Amino acid sequence: MHVTIDNLSVTLQARRVLSDISFAAPRAQTVGLLGPNGSGKSTLIRAMAGVLPCAYAGVKIGGKSTGEMSRRQLSRTLAFVPQHAESEAGMTVAEIVRLGRSPHRSAFSTWRTGDEQAVQQALSLMKLDALANRPWQRLSGGERQRCQIARALTQQPDILLLDEPINHLDIQFQLELMRLISSLPVTVIVALHDLNLAAKYCQQLVVLHQGQVVASGAPDSVLTPNLIKRTWQVDATIHRTGRGDMNILYA
């Protein structure tokens, strides 16, 4: 399912955080949100997730405004993982992941085989099988992040919104997670800091600076030395690997 952002502006506590944001995230593609700290990436992700009611009018899913969707409809359609997701300390990994099935179940429905299959698949994808019975408070920062992503995958959403998902992850899990999300048959919008990972695993990029879109499109056309200099204030050169991948080097 595709997502369209049309002239979205967000003001928080009398400060304009986002101004006239417009772009489209095509169905089943991975779109990377890039930009320096404070550029508005997290605010934009939260606006798309429906966390900011003031932004409903500028966000459309499959051509329908999120303001026209009920919370249950929105929860069945998209899953959102914030940067610093928390859970009840006494819950285990499996119990947290099972919460992802809530939008698909009523208060009185029984736990079905399909629910358990969704949970087990998510645990396996995030390599959490051995930690399923471990309490939340005994998890490392990276394990907590993987747990929350597993919960989101258990929702079986059409759209997955991830705010800095590779923070706190070891390099191995950063690469594995980016490979995983780029292979999912859903629309993924992910905020990232690592330009090389974004170039390698995202089909499209949207670059924010001071609350505005300064570039969008395919990684080849977006990540140029001039744009990197203007946006991040660093000198960079672009090289190609033997397989044609972009490799950004900083001076």
Rank of each mutant, 00 (worst) to 15 (best):
H168S: 08
D129I: 01
A198R: 12
H168K: 00
L153C: 05
W136H: 03
T154C: 14
L123E: 04
D194I: 00
R230V: 08
I228E: 13
N167I: 03
Q156V: 12
R134I: 15
V206R: 09
P157S: 08
L128W: 05
M246K: 11
A132K: 15
M178D: 01
R138H: 15
Q121P: 00
L169H: 05
A150G: 01
I171R: 07
D129W: 00
Q121M: 09
A132T: 08
Q210L: 11
H239R: 13
Q174P: 03
L227G: 09
T237W: 02
L197F: 07
R230P: 01
W232Y: 15
C202I: 09
Q155T: 14
V213Y: 12
V188I: 13
M178I: 01
L180T: 02
D194G: 00
A215Q: 03
H168Q: 08
D235A: 12
S221Q: 13
E116I: 07
N133D: 14
Q172A: 06
A191T: 08
Q148L: 14
Y250G: 04
D220E: 15
G217R: 10
R134S: 12
A150C: 02
G242P: 07
Q203F: 01
T241K: 07
S183V: 04
L131T: 06
T237E: 09
D129C: 02
Q212N: 13
G242I: 13
L192G: 08
H239L: 14
A236G: 09
V190I: 15
T231M: 05
G142C: 05
G217L: 09
L180I: 03
C147S: 12
G217W: 07
L195F: 09
W136S: 01
K200F: 00
Q203N: 07
Q212F: 01
Q212V: 10
L197M: 14
A132I: 05
L153R: 02
T237C: 07
